[in-house]
Amino acid sequence: MRHLGRTLAVSALPVLCLLALAALIQTFAEPFQVRLAYAFFMNLVLALGLQVFMGNSGVVSFGHLGFMGVASYAVAILTIPVALKATMIPDAPFGLAGVELSPLVAALIAFALVLVLAFLSGFLVSRLSGAAAEIFTLALLVIAYVVFTAWIDLTRGQRSLYGIPVTSGLGFAAAVACVSVVVARLFRDSDLGLQLRASSEDTLAARAMGVHIGRLRHIAWVISALIVGAAGVLHATYLGAIGPNSFYFSQTFLVMAMIILGGMRSVSGTILGVLAISVGNEIARTLESGPVVLGVDLPEMFGLTGFFLGAVIVATMIWRRDGILGDIEFETLFRRRKAPSKGGEA
């Protein structure tokens, strides 16, 4: 843990910026802007969770939204008042219809559940080759979605579960985001993270040097799933109602575009990407509903946000494969600017 001090020091800048942003919005903004800001912090936690796995292992995961859903549903089912459950999910298995826990205990149980599921699915992800593992993460997303929609006794299927006590707020979300930044940086700077990144560049060479890629990948998978689980807790405890479609494709596209645009190999890039796509997505959503811009009445164009996200992904891949920041973190960026590169091309 000798890098602990350094990591805390370099995390200070983004953490302070995020906290300042939250404070400003909380103080001055309209309620709908507070909601947008909350979504930003929640997506940031989600994206950072993904970054821990994808950025270090070099393996793309489409399946993490499943973990978010598991955590959200766990919190929802455990905290919704018994009286409400009697009308929504009276036949819930394991006697869950009669259980009502505090949000904190529910969150802890949700984490435990995510931990178990991530540990089990991690065997698959860590054994398969890169491409096969990536295809299977998508299968995991489908498995999760099928369970959310088909286990009607427990989840109410396609209909939403409501009545979750709203206990979270913007400050809490910002705090969770800051903790996630620090955890992601800690993992990135740790020996594990370093070895994992090195092995993702050349699997054969890493194997030859005795690096256990599978084990490293497994650890990163579990840590990232837990962070994503935190995003799920934030989701359920703020909105008060959840449905299966929040944990499927559209949300997966969104978070993918975020970390691809910013640069998934860097924590700072991830933060930047979440910020940029949050703003862009909001603009696209406004255009989609056919607003009046400069006196011109635009037509309704459903699908514009999706199109925008797809276009961002393709454009980034073609023109700036590693995202805006690549594998550079903020502090390197500033250091570079202060001390112009010595000698340049050596």
């Binding site: 070099g58 793309v60 489409f62 890169g130 491409a131 990536e134 596209f253 993918m256 691809i260 164009m301 459903f302 699908g303 514009l304 999706g306 199109f307 996200l309 797809g310 276009a311 961002v312 992904i313 393709v314 891949m317 073609i318 494969r321």
Partner: peptide, 26 residues
């Protein structure tokens, strides 16, 4: 993106797939 990494190709295809889907939606 012909000689790019596996992930670049896959993510591009993923993006292309989203674009086509939404073109049909629009």
């Amino acid at each position: 993106i012909r000689n790019a990494s596996l992930n670049t190709g896959m993510l591009t295809a993923f993006g292309v797939s989203i674009i086509i889907q939404n073109v049909f939606v629009i």
